[in-house]
Simulated scan of single mutants.
Amino acid sequence: MGEVSNKQVFLRNYVSGFPKESDMYLVEGKITLKLPEGSNDVLLKNLYLSCDPYMRTRMNKVDGPEVEGFNAYILDSPLTGYGVAKVIESGDPNYKEGDLVWGFTKWEEYSLVPSTQIVFKIEHNDVPLSYYTGILGMPGMTAYAGFFEIGSPKKGENVFVSAASGAVGQLVGQFAKLTGCYVVGSAGSKEKVDLLKNKLGFDEAFNYKEELDLNAALKRYFPEGIDIYFENVGGKTLDAVLLNLKLHARIPTCGMISQYNLTQHEGVTNLSNLIYKRIRMEGFVVSDYYHLYPKFLEFLLPHIREGKIVYVEDIAEGLENGPAALVGLFSGRNVGKQVVVVARE
């Protein structure tokens, strides 16, 4: 195989405030579909790319947290993120031509990456491949680790999930129901609230944009208080939740999407409740839990196959629609997990 064209999505400039499609641009590059002599890298054909909220922090000029994958993007270079890909050629004996993998890749049709960027080889392909950007990939592991490892749920507990129709939230709610918990989710539209209640099995759901007083809304849905708050948004929601937690409540802290586009983050005023109610609030990064991936698949795959867990995806066709799909995360345009299809095989 010789040189072929390679569509790519580049970052044009660093972002302040909400990202725009014009902050990115499409390039028609070239790539040789042959590994350089003696290379240990892996040549990938990208199939599905994942749009994730943390990618916004990488559009800032300053590097994000000192965690692999959070460093600032390089201008006039391809975006990088999680994706599903097919191995075309490999300099690493662990991977061979035709293998399907998921891990870190670039926003382009073909990528040459170090094999260390592959997180796992895909062994189970009786489920949609796109699931490895979501329910069976990083977001699924995030929901699993945050809820079970940090949330430590017990049957009969009360669970609140913010950004509940998103890639992670929709799974946390279903995991809570499987555990025998009462679960309520918040989302930003009537369509999403209906989805939570009618398709994803949440006991209750509400549109936070319609609630003038979040504290009052939470008291309505949780008259006895909240045992586990799965934190995806931060800001005013977190402040209201802190007033409604029970003794020894847990807050697995996954994300704070309401803050990512603000130049000045909102203050949280009710933190003293952490003391009086002996609350545990713990942030986590999913890569710390990838050692649990085999156990996670063992738990989740049978539930997916039996239809006991459902997963909602929002599919954008074509790399050229990637920037709009990514930007849409921050206005809540997506319903479910946002995926960009580069190629289907």
Rank of each mutant, 00 (worst) to 15 (best):
L274D: 02
W107P: 06
S130E: 14
G151R: 01
D23Y: 08
T237P: 01
F202P: 13
G188R: 04
G38M: 05
S162L: 04
D227A: 06
G234W: 00
I275K: 07
T142Q: 05
Y132K: 11
S165P: 07
S258Q: 11
T116C: 02
F222V: 03
Y131G: 01
V172E: 06
S331C: 10
L297F: 09
N207G: 13
A216H: 02
I304M: 08
G322T: 12
R12F: 06
F148M: 08
E306I: 06
G318P: 13
P302A: 05
L243D: 07
D203Y: 06
R280F: 02
L129W: 01
V183Y: 05
I135A: 13
L271S: 07
L49P: 10
L271K: 02
K34I: 04
Q259T: 13
F284N: 09
W107I: 08
G38Y: 00
A240T: 06
L100Q: 09
A217E: 04
E123R: 10
L242H: 07
C181Q: 01
L171Q: 09
Y54Q: 05
D76M: 04
E298M: 07
N232F: 03
R56M: 11
N273R: 00
M281L: 12
G17Y: 03
L171A: 09
A164G: 06
L301P: 04
S162D: 04
K86W: 08
N273A: 10
A143K: 10
N13T: 13
L243T: 05
T133I: 07
Y132C: 12
V335P: 04
P323H: 11
L129V: 12
Y54H: 08
K295P: 00
M281A: 10
Y208L: 05
S50P: 13
D23F: 04
K86F: 11
K209L: 15
G81R: 13
L79P: 06
G83P: 10
S272K: 13
Y260R: 06
K96P: 02
